[in-house]
């Protein structure tokens, strides 16, 4: 015995998981969606994704420097935010606006409130809403799928299937494989489901939020006389349910709270879709429920072992 010994608090054994690994898993889960969007919209979608990721990482790096915080690029959360932000933008978005979105998400929504783990709304979604309000025209121009193959440099704009005017011309097949106009990451349901299954298998997310979110939308649209399958596979619902609403920081932690959160997301999505002026309600409903999360947690304090009713 020559060297000194460590004295630490138990436990002395740790799971091999880390924040970085979780974020890496999310990035892997987005790969099918990136691939699908590149096939459907061409190289330009990659350019948009690259722009937002770069802008997010750069913003994170600079704000950490200026605010004298430990550099947090390594945890990859800025990369995830960048990818998710690009997913909710149109492929025809001007590069400057996309870069500005990354800046808003990281600096205004994340770092101003204290950095990783402290933001009260999902940075990517909230940034999208800010862009939607600031640049309504550019944010609602969606090119036709495979327009780049038709050889023209011009981007043909069209409305999303949720706009009632084009509703009749879209088949379930188009919805599932993404042969519809829309945001980069929202159109190909198959790719989103693949990514979602990967996250579930890797236990990064639990099934509770997606299932209750989608389930609520299904039941409510059915009760209101809509086409539930159409509502599930169109717009940002799947992306929102698997990738946005499950964001750890801005969603509740216990099972019951998560159910309330997810049902709330579904409820407001349907309300906005059917009664609102906007074609899409997913981002607004998730952000609204993000804001309500601390309230839900306060109301639903779990009873500890030995203090529950069954004794």
């Amino acid at each position: 015995m020559s060297s000194k010994l460590y004295l630490t608090s138990s436990p002395h054994l740790h799971d091999k998981n880390s924040t970085q690994k979780i974020m890496l898993d999310v990035i892997i889960a987005t790969l099918p969606i990136i691939l699908a969007s590149t096939i459907i919209f061409g190289m330009r979608s990659l350019v948009v994704i690259f722009t937002t990721v770069l802008s997010c990482v750069l913003s994170e790096y600079l704000s950490c420097k200026i605010m004298k915080r430990p550099n947090s690029i390594k945890d990859l959360s800025a990369v995830v935010t960048g990818i998710l932000l690009a997913f909710s933008l149109s492929v025809s978005i001007p590069i400057g606006i996309a870069a500005f979105g990354g800046f808003v998400a990281i600096v205004v929504i994340k770092q101003f409130f204290g950095g990783l783990g402290q933001n009260f709304v999902n940075p990517a979604l909230c940034s999208r809403i800010i862009l939607l309000i600031s640049f309504p025209a550019q944010m609602t121009n969606w090119p036709e799928p495979f327009a780049y193959l038709k050889g023209s440099a011009d981007i043909i704009t069209s409305a999303t299937p949720l706009d009632k005017s084009v509703l009749t011309t879209v088949t379930y097949f188009d919805l599932f494989f993404g042969n519809i106009p829309g945001c980069i990451g929202e159109i190909c349901s198959m790719a989103i489901l693949l990514g979602g299954i990967y996250l579930l298998v890797k236990k990064v997310i639990s099934i509770i939020i997606p299932i209750f979110f989608i389930g609520t939308v299904f039941v409510l649209t059915f009760l209101m006389g809509g086409d539930p399958i159409f509502h599930i596979f169109s717009g940002g619902l799947l992306l929102g349910a698997f990738f946005m609403a499950t964001d750890y920081v801005t969603s509740p932690v216990t099972r019951l709270e998560r159910i309330i959160f997810a049902v709330g997301c579904g409820f407001f999505t349907v309300i906005i879709r059917i009664f609102g002026n906007l074609p899409e309600g997913v981002s607004f409903s998730i952000v609204l429920m993000n804001i309500l999360t601390p309230l839900i947690e306060k109301l639903m304090l779990p009873k500890p072992f030995g203090k529950r009713e069954n004794i």
Binding site: L116, G117, V253
Partner: peptide, 14 residues
């Protein structure tokens, strides 16, 4: 025995 550096809580709920 090496200690791992703590990073901010991300509220993952684990």
């Amino acid at each position: 025995a090496a200690m791992q550096e703590a990073s901010p809580c991300i509220r993952c709920g684990r």
